[in-house]
Simulated scan of single mutants.
Amino acid sequence: MFSNLWNKGGFILCTKGQAELSINGVRHNFSQGEVLVITPLVLVGEVSVSEEFAALSFVDDLKTYYDIFNRIADSPIPLMVYREPIWEIEVNEQQYLAKQHAHLEQLTHSMAESASETSRSLLDFQVRLLRQEAMLTVVNSRIRQVVWLPSSHSREVVVYRFILALHNNYHTHRSVAYYADMANLSKSHFSAIVKQTTGQSPSAWIATITTTYAKFMLEKGSMNIKQIAEQLNFPEQFTFRKYFKQHTGLSPKAYREQYVHK
Score class of each variant (00 low, 15 high):
F162A: 03
T118A: 06
S191N: 09
Q196N: 11
E219R: 13
Y82F: 11
I72S: 02
M217S: 05
K245L: 00
I163P: 04
N184P: 00
L164C: 04
P202A: 03
S31C: 04
E113K: 15
E46Q: 13
E34A: 05
E88H: 13
I72C: 02
I12T: 01
A54F: 08
D61Y: 14
V49Q: 04
S119R: 14
Y255L: 05
L62M: 11
F30L: 08
Q126K: 12
L185Y: 10
I206N: 03
N184F: 13
Q126I: 07
S152K: 09
E105M: 15
F238A: 11
L104N: 03
L36N: 03
A102I: 04
H101D: 06
S191K: 04
E230Y: 13
A177F: 11
E113C: 13
S152M: 02
D74W: 04
T118N: 07
I86Q: 10
P252T: 02
R83T: 05
F190C: 06
V35G: 03
F125H: 12
Y213V: 15
V44Q: 03
K187F: 01
E20S: 13
T108R: 13
R142D: 00
E113Y: 11
R161Q: 14
Q227T: 00
M1P: 09
L62A: 09
E156S: 10
S151M: 09
H189A: 07
S152L: 06
P235N: 11
A102K: 15
G199Y: 09
A134M: 03
P202S: 05
V37S: 03
P85T: 03
I23G: 01
A73S: 14
V47D: 00
Q231N: 14
W205S: 07
A192Y: 10
P76T: 12
P85N: 03
H153A: 08
H171F: 13
M1D: 10
G221F: 08
S3Q: 12
S57F: 01
A134K: 05
K8Q: 15
F216Q: 14
Y170H: 12
L129G: 10
I209R: 02
E257I: 03
Q145M: 06
H171E: 10
Y243I: 03
E51G: 06
K195R: 15
T211N: 00
Y96G: 00
N4Y: 14
P252S: 03
T39H: 00
V147D: 09
K262R: 14
H247S: 02
Q246T: 15
S191I: 04
L104K: 02
H189Y: 10
Q231M: 14
Q94N: 07
E51I: 11
Y243R: 05
